[in-house]
């Protein structure tokens, strides 16, 4: 079986996505047990290679691998060979000595996963590369939607609001949401909306005038760096929150809010929303584990129905 990478949501068909979500669902009972572990990937090696700090994503992958009984190795950019000037290609070759089955990588540069994949026998799973893609976030978002809003996401209207320009999450989500039949509207300050993005089949808006049309409101984190002199994307976080921030007062009763975290209270999201369990934000974090278990599992055993999840548990 040729190795299978997950670098972009585009690497998956709709059937693949649905299989992954079904697989993740089948892992949920495991996570309820006293002993939250299955032997499925015993003897397999999974390396977490994080060139950018991300406690949330790296620990989620690490725990997912351990729940599946894989051997794990975590490498962080700080203190490693990276700081001594080793190239990504050299790192890939070095890691081959451990014969990993999967390398999960986060990297600040788009294209890093392709470089890695070209230089390793292992399957590469993208845990975020530059502003390009973050497919596992998209999959866990889909999982949370499906668990909370019903299995049929067709026709659901999603508004993704925030710094679209710098967001790999947005790019993966647009593709993944559309793949499952959702209608996507992007809302951002004009300075943070990528030119030409409407070609992806999304609606583009600069204010919240049509927010009432949304079933799901997906908020993106606004970083202080966007205000600095020289960046000048935004005049202030205060004005951002006035014009684009979401608080309970702006929401209708049936609208649900999502956020990939970490949140900026008082900027893109008001505390009354962040603390409201009706929203899916906490569930997204919870979904991360089951979905990443499913991704690791399917990457190794294959995306075919023959390897149905139930029989292996």
């Amino acid at each position: 079986m040729p190795k299978r990478d997950l670098i972009s949501i585009e690497d998956l068909s709709r059937a693949d996505v649905e299989l992954l979500l079904d697989t993740a669902e089948s892992f949920l009972p495991v996570l309820e047990r006293d002993i939250k572990k299955v032997p499925t990937l015993r003897g397999r090696t999974i390396i977490n290679l994080f060139w950018e700090a991300s406690t949330r994503t790296s620990s989620s992958f690490d725990l997912a691998a351990k729940r599946l009984s894989a051997d794990t190795l975590a490498l962080k950019a700080s203190g490693s060979a990276v700081e001594k000037g080793e190239t990504l290609k050299d790192t890939a070759i070095t890691l081959s000595a451990y014969s990993p089955d999967i390398i999960v990588m986060r990297h600040p540069s788009a294209g890093a996963c392709q470089t890695l994949s070209a230089n390793t026998e292992a399957s590469v799973i993208n845990a975020g590369d530059g502003k390009h893609q973050h497919p596992t976030q998209c999959l866990l978002d889909l999982f949370s939607m499906r668990q909370n809003l019903g299995r049929d996401l067709d026709g659901l209207k999603v508004f993704i609001i925030g710094d679209i320009l710098h967001s790999r999450v947005a790019r993966s989500d647009i593709m993944g949401f559309q793949m499952l039949g959702m209608e996507v509207t992007l809302v951002a300050p004009p300075t943070l909306m990528p030119r030409g993005i409407e070609e992806m089949g999304v609606k583009v808006e600069y204010d919240l005038a049509n927010l009432k049309d949304a079933d799901v409101i997906y908020l993106l984190r606004i970083q202080k760096e966007r205000i600095k002199a020289g960046a000048a994307y935004l005049p202030s976080l205060r004005e951002y929150s006035q014009l684009w921030g979401i608080s309970q007062a702006r929401l209708g009763p049936k609208q649900r809010v999502m956020h990939p975290g970490p949140i900026n209270r008082g900027v893109e999201i008001a505390s009354d929303i962040a603390d409201d369990d009706e929203n899916l934000i906490a569930h997204q974090v919870f979904s991360g584990l089951a979905v990443r278990m499913a991704i690791l599992y399917r990457t190794i055993v294959g995306y075919s129905d023959g390897a149905a999840s139930g029989e292996v548990l």
Binding site: I227, A229, A232, P235, E239, Q242
Partner: peptide, 11 residues
């Protein structure tokens, strides 16, 4: 008028 950071044009 420093040519660096935008003002709060919305407000």
């Amino acid at each position: 008028l420093e040519g660096q950071e935008l003002t709060e044009m919305g407000e």
